[in-house]
Amino acid sequence: MSGLTVRELHDLPDLEAVDSLFSRIWGAGPGGSPMGVEQMRALSHAGNYVAGAYADGRLVGATVAFFAAPVGQALHSHVTGALPGHAAGLALKRHQRAWALDRGLSRITWTYDPLVRRNAHFNLTKLGARPVEYLTGFYGPMDDAINGGDDTDRALCSWELSDPAVVAAAASAPLPVTVPDGAVTALAARDGLPVTGRLDAPALLVEVPPDIEALRRTDPGAAKAWRLALREVLGGLLATGATVTGFDDRTSYVVVRDTTP
C-alpha cells in the first residue's frame, strides 16, 4: 500500500470523480452508479463517511458509509469499489476502521455477495469480519456488469473493531484459518455444479465456485444453481444459529454448528 493516500471527501469535484469511478467498476451507464453524487454530498455533509484512495494523485478506490443502529456504536459501509493492482480496498477499510474508532464506534457492518471467493477471502481472512446473516434478494434485480441480473443475495458482515483477531489483521497479516477435526463437506463443486452433502455435522465446509462472475456470463444456469444451493446451505445454517469461523484455502466457508442439547 506504499504510495497510496486515503482521505475523506466533501467537495463536489471529488464526489463526481467517485461517481465516475463507481460507474466504471460496476459497468453502469450514466446515472447507474451504486451511489450518486447527491447522496454522497448529503451523507458527507451530515458527518458520515465518504473517502477516496489515491495512487500518484489518481483516484483508484472509494467507499461510502453511514451511521447505523445501535446508535453510537455502529457504522454501515454501503459501497466500496477499487481498481485492481493498488491494494486500495485494504487501505480504505483500515482508514474506515480508524475513522470509526476515533468516533467511539465499535462495529462496522456491510453486505457482500457470498458467492464471490475473493470477497469472502478478503472480508474473513484479511479483515477478520464474520458473516452473521444471509439476506435473500436484498437489493432486488441489478443488471450491471458485476451482478449480471443474478438474484442479489447478500451476507451481512460484522466487523468487531476491537476484537483481538481484527486488531491483528488490521496490523499486518491475514488470519490463520482452522478447520476443526472431523469437518465434513456440506457443499462442494463437482463438474462446475454444486453438490450438497451432509448438513448435520458439528463442523462443515461450504464451497463456492471459483469465479461466479464469469459463470454468470458463460453458464447462467449453473450460476443460478449455485445461488440456490448456497442460499439453502449457508443461508439455512446461519438461520439456525451456526457460526462462520473462517474461509479455508480461498475456497470454502468454515461453519460450526452449536450441537448443545
Rank of each mutant, 00 (worst) to 15 (best):
P176C: 05
A189Y: 12
D56L: 06
G128C: 01
A69R: 13
P210V: 08
A82W: 06
R154L: 11
K93H: 10
G27P: 00
T125G: 04
D151L: 13
E8Y: 09
E133D: 12
D153E: 07
A53T: 02
T245L: 10
H76W: 11
V64G: 06
H78G: 00
D144T: 06
D219R: 13
L199Q: 09
P261M: 08
D19A: 14
G85Y: 14
G72W: 08
V254E: 03
E232T: 13
F122K: 00
L237N: 08
H10Q: 10
G72Q: 03
R103W: 05
S252H: 14
I146K: 05
Y134N: 10
Y139L: 05
A88Q: 02
P174T: 12
S162D: 15
G241D: 03
A17Y: 00
T196C: 05
T218R: 14
V50T: 12
C157M: 15
R216K: 15
T245V: 11
G236P: 03
D200K: 05
Q73M: 13
G47R: 01
D150G: 08
A87Y: 15
D56C: 06
R231P: 06
I212R: 02
N123R: 03
C157R: 01
P180C: 04
Y253F: 14
D143L: 02
G104Y: 10
Q39V: 08
G137V: 12
C157D: 13
G72I: 04
G235W: 02
Y112C: 12
Q96A: 03
G72R: 04
E232W: 13
L175Q: 01
E160K: 00
A74D: 11
G128K: 01
A189C: 13
R97V: 09
L21H: 08
N48Y: 12
G236F: 03
G236N: 04
Y134S: 11
V244M: 06
R250F: 14
T5A: 14
A188K: 14
P209R: 02
V116M: 02
D102F: 09
D249L: 11
